[in-house]
Simulated assay, not measured.
Amino acid sequence: MTINDPTPAESAMTSGATLELVGVTKAFGDFVAVQDVSFVVKPGSLVALLGPSGCGKTTMLRMIVGLETPSSGSVLFDARDVSALGPGERGAGLVFQDYAIFPHLTVSENLGFALKMRGDSPAEQQEVVKELAAALELTALLKKKPRSLNPSELQRVSIGRALAARPAIMLFDEPLSNVEAGMRTRMRAELRTLHKAFGQTAVYVTHDQTEAMALADRVAVMNRGRLVQFGAPRELYDRPADAFVAGFIGTPPMNLLDVEATEGRAYAGSLSVPIPQGLRRGDARWQLGFRPEHTRLSLAPDHNEVARGQVVAIEPMGAEVTVTVAGKGWQVAALLDEADRADLTEDASVSVVVDASHLHWFHPDGPRDFAADTRAQEGAVAH
């Protein structure tokens, strides 16, 4: 090995493969768990598969790793069709939510397990384990058994054991779901730092939208077996493809109201807003959405109000507070700074004000279907 050659551990830290799914479908009898999903994960990027329980994300992960075979469509690693190959033939590493670490082995032995099974020499095993331990801040723990480690350390051992096999793609199956809330935030930051350091292509399965938005370069939102939207976290937040994505992304979730369009305005009970030009033709029923953080409340009447209602709940959240307001035929939440709600009390009568640029319109039967330039002309968010 020359001075310029990468060490075995450095080879494990290089960017992984391109992952591509082309029209992937998986059916179990009459039940279709995943239907016609296609997307590309670029080398070195992290994509989160996000959605509620039963949406198909775990089945998708199992098809990528090779534990399930697609009913149709293809899974490609660096343009090579691996759809019919088993897990051991694909070169994918899998990190489980329960860590899947051998309890009777030390940290060092766990990190080197895949290398030993592959037949690497003891010297090669030792070199990789040493360098992975240094990168994962596990050096001081190499002689310890898993029972003496905290969740963060266990997760790093699990990641290191997967990385030691030099996978083309790293797959994470809800690795933080069993971690207490206080540590989960810190471990998200650790995972993001580790991903940047190792540069592996990664797919991260989660039902937690905060986790997905914080970790991923791109998010694939799944619902009922279908890929609903694929894009950067900010794109999903600013321009959700449909009402499902709008309600799933963001905390608190977007306010969504069924409205009826008539004579240039849309109504949900006593709440009403002007209708963008693109909606003034065709269907009369839509879903109107606006985020709590884009909702302003005023004790005094406001000529820009969309409705006047009554405060029914005030929920302090540290520096912010969620205020729920209800009126005839509607209820919405507003996210305010603590200072902005100082004069608000439950049962107070308030004006609800939302700027037109923050209104989202969704067709009740599916994704948006009117031109973005029409929305732009109305001064609203393009959909």
Rank of each mutant, 00 (worst) to 15 (best):
R281D: 15
D283W: 01
L257W: 12
G199Q: 04
R281V: 15
D208H: 02
R281T: 13
L215M: 13
Q209S: 08
F244W: 09
F290V: 01
F248W: 06
I249A: 02
L279F: 10
T251A: 15
H207F: 02
E211R: 08
G264C: 04
E235F: 06
P274M: 04
R188W: 01
P240F: 06
L236A: 07
A216H: 01
N223L: 12
A284F: 05
P253I: 08
G225F: 12
M213V: 11
H195L: 05
A241N: 14
R234A: 13
Y237P: 00
T193C: 04
Q200N: 13
I275W: 12
R280A: 14
T193E: 14
G250D: 03
F198Q: 06
R192Y: 04
V221M: 10
R188L: 04
R234P: 00
S270T: 10
M213S: 09
R224S: 11
F248A: 15
T251Y: 15
L279Q: 05
V228C: 07
Y237S: 01
H294F: 15
T295I: 07
R291L: 00
F248I: 13
M183W: 07
Y267G: 00
A246F: 08
H195I: 03
F290L: 01
Q229N: 13
G289P: 04
N223H: 12
R280L: 11
A202P: 09
R281I: 13
A216P: 06
V203K: 11
R239C: 10
Q229D: 14
I275A: 08
R265Q: 13
G182R: 13
F244L: 06
D283C: 06
I249K: 01
A241W: 14
Y237H: 11
Q277C: 12
G289E: 06
G269K: 11
R186G: 04
V205E: 13
R186L: 12
G278Y: 06
W286N: 04
P276N: 04
F198W: 07
Q229F: 02
A232G: 06
Q229G: 15
F198P: 07
P292H: 05
R281C: 03
F230I: 12
Y204D: 02
H195W: 08
Q200D: 11
A243I: 10
D283Y: 00
G250R: 01
